[in-house]
Simulated scan of single mutants.
Amino acid sequence: MPPIEDMTPEEIQEWMDALEKEMLRRQNLALFQEKQTELHEQFRNNGMLPKADFGEWEKPEESVDAYGVGDVVTRNGKVRRAKAGMVVCEPSCDEHWEDAGEEPEDE
């Protein structure tokens, strides 16, 4: 991108339009994720989707197998808790997972 002082009014308008479009996308994405999480939790609470058992993370085969808010799994010796609903990424993804303590010792 050239310095703004060197841009034509048309180029500035193109950037402004692109920025406005990106802001709208981000706002809609946040709302979509919020509603998706609510729906996932509602299905879990109604017994339509099972709650994940504490155990080793497994890649969900379908969206109905996705992890929900509060699901706790282990992966590579770490215990992780899902921060959102419909989580299908690995627990190393900090956007959707958080640390949840130490892995229990084998007895």
Rank of each mutant, 00 (worst) to 15 (best):
L31K: 14
I4K: 15
L39C: 11
D53T: 07
V88T: 15
Y67M: 06
E90F: 03
M1C: 13
E38H: 10
R75L: 01
N28H: 13
G85Y: 09
E20L: 11
V69M: 04
E41Q: 14
E10Y: 08
E103C: 00
P2K: 15
E11P: 06
A52V: 03
E5Q: 14
D106C: 02
P91D: 02
P60Y: 05
Q36K: 13
E105R: 09
I4H: 13
S63H: 13
E34S: 09
D94E: 08
E61V: 05
W15E: 15
E98M: 12
A66V: 03
G55V: 01
M48F: 11
C93Q: 11
E98R: 06
N76E: 06
G70W: 02
E102Q: 10
R25H: 08
G85I: 08
A100S: 13
R25K: 11
G47A: 12
F54Y: 06
E58Q: 10
Q42K: 14
D65M: 08
E11D: 10
F54V: 02
N76D: 07
N76L: 04
V79T: 00
E10F: 07
F43Q: 07
K21D: 11
R75T: 02
F43P: 01
E5T: 14
E38Q: 14
W97N: 03
K59G: 07
K78C: 00
V72A: 01
G47W: 08
W15F: 15
R75D: 02
F54I: 02
A82C: 04
